[in-house]
Design a protein around this nucleic acid. Structure first.
Lengths: 229, 229
DNA sequence: GAGGGCGAAACGGTCGACAATATAAGATGT
DNA sequence: ACATCTTATATTGTCGACCGTTTCGCCCTC
């Protein structure tokens, strides 16, 4: 397979390598079980092994790769069971915590930012820009997680959310893009209304909705439980 | 502060460095905000910077350290809020998932192993070997997490549980050590009885009990919310 | 004396080469 | 022919040196 260093001169080489590999996995160019050899990646990308190693380590933490010491690192598999029974519930806990914090402490700072992201999302949805919607969706939730002075919830969130999107990245209809966008709108309105319970409920529903789409999708074009493969 | 490479010839240098640093943090030799400089650690431990970098990366994922790119990496702080509202609930989700899997699929393989760990725990508890109890406790739960063919739950578990123990590592009475041990016994008995609900309830209770001790402890000898500092 | 560049120091990021380890292939003895 | 030891190979782990970025103190200017 080909593989190219992502652009973005300001980012470190390691980060660009990580982006490239993540995209290769999301795009299905690399499937579970595939080996990822440091030297090969370094050659293909025109860098040394050092930043490749760092990028691989990062992807291991995010669950995209698995490392067998002194032997190999492979693309990990991902099952609907894990996503729905573990990863999504965890994500709900993390985001719920952040949401509560925002509602209690710094609405004024965070909410406008989130609205502007939703605006961008709407534009992408109208143009059927699937990747754009997904990216803004991720940004929305990440911003929410970063609106907290606590570092651990955001850290855990970062280590599970990307792999969840590993399944969301394929085949999405126009209607779904709009639904996703409106899910965020509903949450923001609830926040502004000031009632915690409805806001939490809407956020949870929004996250689990994505999961449902994910599972439906998966069942429709795969016989195995593995998401890709 | 001093700092020594942990023994264990079979382990990689990176792993031994990680163990050393983790212990330094658990022991309070390194407190939140302290800088950890790669070159310094490498010099003190008599290695090159490469494995130190890898160890630091690992500790960043576990939440012991925080990295500010191109600037510094510091010992992160940890609050009771994060532990009780996010980390512990997440741990419960992960372990509950593993427990259910074990009860449905491979009791015969896993349960005996867990019993033998509990036996070792009892011996440590009798001798008031605090560290021994904690280590076996961790091993017990890790074994449970690894009894699953799924990799992601165990991965997430590994990235949150060590920091939870960052608070449990100080001042524990003889009675508490016994309680902890018996908590495991209760869970194992429930598993053998075959009823899922009680087993899950006991496991949850066991995990949250530790958290309660943790918070009580913290409140007793700290005015701040930070666990150390 | 205050503000703004300038340069050096500190540190993390990257590089190319070498060491350690695990697997697989080949040789050797029975 | 089979098991076992040896050797070769592929790949990760570690090393020491160098590069890039950030920070901070100095000097110059106004």
């Amino acid at each position: 397979m080909t593989l190219q260093l992502s652009e973005g001169v300001h980012a470190s080489i390691r980060e660009r390598i990580a982006v490239s590999l993540r995209q290769a996995i999301l795009a299905g160019d690399l499937v579970p079980g595939d080996r990822v050899v440091e030297a090969d990646v370094a050659t293909k990308l025109g860098t040394s092994r050092a930043p490749v190693r760092e990028a691989l380590g990062q992807l291991v933490n995010e669950g995209f790769l698995e490392s067998l010491p002194y032997r190999a690192t492979r693309v990990s598999s991902l099952t609907t069971t894990e996503v729905s029974e573990v990863l999504v519930p965890i994500r709900v806990i993390a985001e719920t915590f952040a949401l509560r914090h925002v509602m209690k402490n710094d609405q004024a700072t965070t909410i406008p930012e989130l609205w502007s992201i939703v605006a961008a999302m709407r534009i992408c949805a109208e143009q059927a820009d699937r990747l754009g919607v997904i990216e803004n969706d991720l940004t929305f939730h990440r911003k929410l997680m970063e609106a907290t002075p606590y570092t651990h919830p955001a850290r855990v969130w970062s280590s599970i959310t990307p792999v969840i999107y590993r399944a969301f990245a394929v085949g999405t209809t126009h209607a779904v893009l709009n639904d996703t966008t409106e899910g965020h709108v509903a949450v923001l309105r609830a926040i502004e209304a000031g009632d915690e319970q409805p806001a939490v409920a809407l956020l949870t529903e929004h996250i689990e909705e994505m999961e449902l789409r994910f599972i439906a999708q998966d069942a429709s074009h795969a016989s195995e439980e593995d998401v890709h493969g």
